[in-house]
């Protein structure tokens, strides 16, 4: 389990093989041809199914293109001009950002808390409980939308019945533009918490038992052990788990489409939903414009990620200096 989590840590990914010995061994075996043979499947497939579509999107975004099979004509930056003046695009960016800012920390911390409890091998029924939290992850979105309609129902839903006991409500979770985004975020967290939990469980496997026992022998209580042993060791994983969680969160769109279709009144129109809507859902499909939204969104996301990485690295360096 060391494996899974350390891995994507930027340093590991960036770093060259650490020992000269490895390279030497490799060199002796005249491996260079094999290296490229090994790389070939990924490079070829990745080129076909990720790089090529990315480039295509870039090209599409400069076209006036009203649907597959139809004529495409070059319009230059017209789609981008339209994009800058499109209030729905900016609104959708804001909604996406809000979703990430709210659900990612929630999932990461809740996942960690649960993982700490469920990681205890002596906890009765731990395996079953892990499964319980994991099952929503694999439930089909269509069925999730359907069930959650009941759960969040303002007239008869259990949440509102519980609220009415407290003298609150009824709250029209999905039907009111004030609450719909929060409701969708809640369901998103419900559905995907299991994955974050698995990430943390994997990360926890790397905390050496001896260290904990040593700390215990030194008289550290559970809280102190957590604070001084476990959490510091988990810190590197936090980065990668956050990144993975953010990536997953950006794919919230099918859940939104099923639950609210981006409504009511655009209140849940995340950018991916808007892209989808423009490309396939509109009365008049607009693949050129949808691609432009996609490209702009992609560029902004990558920028955001670069900034975040820099900030985190800076923070870490400052901590190390201290």
């Amino acid at each position: 389990m060391t494996s899974m989590s350390r891995t994507t840590e930027p340093r590991a990914a960036r770093g060259a093989p650490r020992s000269a010995g490895e390279v030497a061994v490799a060199k002796r075996r005249r491996p260079s041809l094999w290296i490229y043979v090994f790389l070939a499947p990924t490079v070829v497939l990745f080129g076909m199914y990720t790089v090529w579509p990315s480039i295509s999107s870039l090209v599409y975004s400069t076209l006036e293109w009203r649907g597959l099979g139809l004529e495409r004509s070059f319009t230059g930056l017209e789609n981008y001009r339209r994009l800058l003046a499109d209030p729905l695009f900016w609104k959708s960016l804001w909604i996406t950002l809000l979703i990430i800012v709210v659900t990612v920390p929630l999932r990461v911390t809740a996942g960690l808390l649960l993982a700490l409890v469920l990681n205890n091998p002596r906890l009765p029924l731990a395996g079953l409980l892990r499964t319980a939290f994991f099952v929503p992850v694999v439930a089909t979105t269509a069925i999730v939308g359907f069930v959650m309609g009941f759960v969040l129902d303002p007239s008869a839903g259990p949440i509102n019945e519980a609220l009415s006991i407290l003298g609150v409500g009824p709250v029209d979770f999905l039907g009111s533009s004030r609450t719909s985004l929060w409701a969708v975020m809640g369901v998103h967290v419900w559905k995907w918490l299991g994955v974050t939990l698995i990430y943390w469980l994997a990360a926890l496997q790397t905390v050496p038992r001896e260290l904990l026992e040593a700390a215990e022998t030194d008289g550290a209580g559970p809280a102190a052990r957590l604070r001084h042993v476990t959490l510091p060791l988990l810190r590197p994983f936090a980065v990668i788990i956050v990144v993975l969680t953010v990536i997953e969160t950006m794919q919230i769109f099918d859940l939104v489409v099923t639950m609210t279709g981006g409504g009511p009144f655009f209140s849940t129109l995340a950018t991916e939903v808007y892209i989808y809507d423009t490309a396939f859902g509109a009365a008049r499909p607009d693949l050129g414009y949808a691609s432009a939204i996609g490209v702009a969104f992609g560029v902004l996301t990558v920028l955001l990620m670069v900034v975040l990485t820099l900030v985190m690295r800076l923070a870490r360096r400052r901590q190390e200096e201290r």
């Binding site: 579509p53 599409y60 490309a279 992609g298 996301t301 990558v302």
Partner: peptide
Amino acid sequence: VATMFIPTGLFVVPV
């Protein structure tokens, strides 16, 4: 790494 964050919603068309 760079392609990790590209929204893939529209990839279906070129694919």
